[in-house]
C-alpha cells in the first residue's frame, strides 16, 4: 500500500482548505450579488433600492435568506418528483465545479487542469440539464416553453463561446487557464482578441440566461419560465445558481481577456477581484439598459453574425500564430 508522508497529508489539507475557501467565497459572492444588483439597478433607475435592513441595506440578503429558508418547500403533485428535485442541484453543482479550475492567484487554484478551458465548457454545457429537466419535470406549459428555449439557446451559444475561446488558446498555446493568464503578461488578450472578447461576453450572457438574453424566464411571457413551479430553497438554488453564473463568467472574462491576477502595485488577488467585480457590475448595467430580443432574433443573431465572426477570428489568429512562430 501507499505510504502517506506528512507532506502528503499537509498538501491534501491545504487543498481542502483552499477548496472550502473558494467554495464559500463563490457562494457568498453570488449571494452578495443579489443586494448589489438591487442597489445598482435602483441607482440606474433613479431610485434607492433596498436601503432599510442594516447599513445601506446590506443585511437585506440575510433577511431574504431567512425568508427563503422558512418558506414551504412544495412539490406539485403532478410533477415528476425525482427529476424535479435533482434539477436545481445540477445548476449549483456545475457552476461550483467550474470554479475549481479558475486561477485566482498563481497559487490559488483548486485543480490545475491541463484542459481547463474545455472543462469550463463541459460544465457550462451540463448546466443546460438543470433548466431542461426543471422545465420538463414541472409539467407546466410555461416551464416547458422556457426549457425548450433554453435548450436551443444554450446549445447554440455554447458553440460561439467555445469558438471565441480558441483564439485565446491559440495565443497562449495551452488549454491551462494559469498558462493563459501568464501569456498575457505583455499585453492583455482583450486587445489582440477584441472580437473574441465581445463574442465571449455575449455568449456568456446567453449561457447563464441573463438579461438581455433571459428568454427562458421572460417574465412578461412565461411568468417565470422554467422555475415557475419552484418555491422555497429549490427556487433559491436556481436564483443563487444564476448569480453564481454571473460571478463565474466575470471571473472567466478576467482570466481569459483581462490578465487575471496581473497588475501593478496591488497584490494579485485584489486585482483579480477588482476586475471581476467590474464585470459583475457591467452585467447589471446590461440588465438595466438593454431590451430582450425576440426568440428568432436571438437565434439569427447567433448563427448569422456571431458564428462567422468567431470563425474568421479563429482563422486569422491561427494564421498569425503560424506565421510568427
Amino acid at each position: 500500500m501507499m505510504e502517506f508522508t506528512q507532506a502528503d497529508v499537509l498538501s491534501v489539507l491545504g487543498t481542502g482548505i483552499k477548496t472550502l475557501v473558494i467554495l464559500v467565497g463563490a457562494v457568498l459572492m453570488a449571494a452578495l450579488m443579489i443586494p448589489i444588483e438591487r442597489r445598482l439597478l435602483g441607482l440606474w433607475q433613479d431610485r434607492y433600492g433596498p436601503n432599510r435592513v442594516g447599513p445601506f441595506g446590506s443585511l437585506q440578503v440575510v433577511a431574504d435568506m431567512i425568508k427563503i429558508f422558512f418558506k414551504e418547500d412544495w412539490i406539485p403533485p403532478f410533477a415528476d418528483k425525482a427529476v424535479f428535485v435533482v434539477a436545481p442541484a445540477i445548476i449549483m453543482l456545475t457552476s461550483l465545479l467550474a470554479f475549481a479550475v479558475i486561477p485566482f492567484t498563481p497559487t490559488w487554484t483548486v485543480a490545475n487542469l491541463n484542459v481547463g478551458v474545455l472543462f469550463l465548457l463541459a460544465m457550462s454545457s451540463l448546466g443546460v440539464y438543470s433548466v431542461i429537466f426543471a422545465g420538463w419535470a414541472s409539467d407546466n406549459k410555461y416551464a416547458l416553453i422556457g426549457a425548450m428555449r433554453t435548450a436551443a439557446q444554450m446549445i447554440s451559444y455554447e458553440v460561439f463561446m467555445g469558438l471565441s475561446l480558441l483564439g485565446v488558446v491559440l495565443l497562449a498555446g495551452s488549454f491551462n487557464l494559469g498558462d493563459i493568464v501568464e501569456s498575457q503578461r505583455g499585453l492583455w488578450n482583450v486587445i489582440p482578441q477584441f472580437p473574441a472578447f465581445v463574442i465571449f461576453f455575449i455568449a456568456g450572457c446567453a449561457e447563464i440566461h441573463r438579461a438581455p438574453f433571459d428568454l427562458p424566464e421572460a417574465e412578461q411571457e412565461l411568468t417565470a419560465g422554467y422555475h415557475t413551479e419552484y418555491s422555497g430553497m429549490k427556487f433559491g438554488m436556481f436564483f443563487v445558481g444564476e448569480y453564481l453564473g454571473i460571478v463565474l463568467i466575470s471571473c472567466l472574462v478576467t482570466v481569459l481577456f483581462f490578465g487575471g491576477w496581473l497588475g501593478p502595485v496591488l497584490p494579485g488577488f485584489v486585482w483579480f477581484f477588482l476586475k471581476a467585480f467590474f464585470f459583475m457590475c457591467f452585467f447589471i448595467l446590461l440588465r438595466a439598459s438593454t431590451v430582450r430580443p425576440r426568440y428568432d432574433q436571438l437565434m439569427a443573431f447567433g448563427w448569422k453574425i456571431l458564428l462567422p465572426i468567431a470563425i474568421v477570428n479563429v482563422a486569422i489568429t491561427g494564421a498569425i500564430v503560424v506565421a510568427t512562430s
Binding site: L43, W44, Y48, S289, I305
Partner: peptide, 28 residues
Amino acid sequence: TAFSATSSVLRTIGMTFMHSFRKRETVL
C-alpha cells in the same frame, strides 16, 4: 445596420450609466 444597431445599444448602456449621477426620485 450593424453599425447603427451596435452604436444604439452602446448609447443606451451609456445613457443608463449616466443616470448614476441623477437625482433620485424616491420619497423616503
